[in-house]
C-alpha cells in the first residue's frame, strides 16, 4: 500500500520560475499526480487558482511579478485547507515566519533530495485524507483512499478516477452541500460539463457506496452524510 497513491487522482499546481527545474520537477510530479499544471510566476499561479481547482499547491517563493508567499496569502483567503508545499532556496527567518502563518504543509529548502520530496508528498497525501486511510461510510462501507477501493463486507469495489475524486471531494466537505458547479469545476478541467454528465457520475458512485450516502439537496446539488 502506497500512501502516495492517494495523489494519483489529484491535481497539483506547481509554480517555479526556473525553466529547467520546472521541467524536471513537473515530470516527477506527473509520476504521482493525475494532473500537473506548471506556471512560472506568482501572478500566473494566482490566476490559475481563480480559474481552476487544485488539490495541492507547490510554490517557489522567489518569483517575478508576485512572489510565492504573496500568492499563497491571496489563495488562503478563499481556501483555508488546500495543502501547500513551499520549495525555496530562502532560509531567512522572515520567510519562515510568513510561511508558518500561511499554514503550509511542508517547507522544502532547495536543493532538496528525492527522499525529502517524496516525504513531503506523503505528508500532503495524508493531509488530503485527514490522516485517515479507512474512511467509514454511512452504510458500513469502508473507503480506502490509497487503493481507491470501497469495501462492503468482503467485497472490494474499485472506483474509477472520477468516482474516487468525487468521493474524496465529498468526504472533505462532509455535511456540506456541494453544488453542481463545484463538482463540474473540480472534475472537469476545461469545459463545464452538462448537469446530466455530473448526475451520471454521482449515480455510478451511489451504486458503489450505497444510495443513502449521498443526499440530494434540491436545486443546489448533493451532500455526503456519514
Amino acid at each position: 500500500m502506497d500512501i502516495l497513491d492517494i495523489l494519483a487522482d489529484k491535481k497539483v499546481l506547481y509554480a517555479e520560475d526556473e525553466k529547467g527545474i520546472r521541467k524536471h520537477i513537473t515530470e516527477v510530479l506527473e509520476l504521482f499526480f493525475d494532473k500537473v499544471v506548471a506556471v512560472e510566476d506568482g501572478a500566473e499561479a494566482a490566476y490559475e487558482m481563480e480559474v481552476g481547482s487544485y488539490d495541492v499547491l507547490m510554490f517557489d517563493i522567489c518569483m517575478p511579478n508576485l512572489d510565492g508567499l504573496e500568492a499563497i496569502k491571496k489563495i488562503r483567503k478563499k481556501d483555508k485547507k488546500i495543502p501547500v508545499v513551499i520549495l525555496s532556496a530562502h532560509t531567512e527567518e522572515e520567510y519562515l515566519w510568513k510561511a508558518v502563518e500561511l499554514k503550509i504543509t511542508k517547507y522544502l529548502v532547495k536543493p532538496y533530495d528525492k527522499q525529502s520530496l517524496v516525504d513531503a508528498l506523503k505528508i500532503v497525501a495524508l493531509e488530503l485524507v485527514d490522516n485517515n486511510l479507512e474512511i467509514q461510510l454511512k452504510n458500513g462501507c469502508i473507503y480506502n483512499p490509497v487503493k481507491k477501493i470501497v469495501c462492503e463486507g468482503s467485497k472490494d469495489i474499485q472506483l474509477t478516477l472520477k468516482e474516487s475524486r468525487l468521493l474524496e471531494y465529498f468526504i472533505k466537505r462532509e455535511s456540506q452541500s456541494v453544488t453542481f458547479d463545484d463538482i463540474g469545476e473540480y472534475l472537469w478541467d476545461i469545459e463545464m460539463p452538462t448537469k446530466e454528465a455530473i448526475k451520471s457520475v454521482v449515480k455510478e458512485l451511489r451504486k458503489k457506496i450505497g444510495k443513502e450516502c449521498i443526499k440530494n439537496v434540491y436545486g443546489i446539488g448533493y451532500m455526503l452524510e456519514f
Binding site: E18, I21, H24, A89, K110, D113, K114
Partner: peptide, 17 residues
C-alpha cells in the same frame, strides 16, 4: 543554488523514473 537545485531535480527525476 539554482544549478544545484536543478541538478538535484534531475537526480530526483532520474531516480523516480
Amino acid at each position: 543554488r539554482q544549478p544545484l537545485t536543478e541538478l538535484s531535480s534531475i537526480l530526483i527525476n532520474m531516480e523516480l523514473f
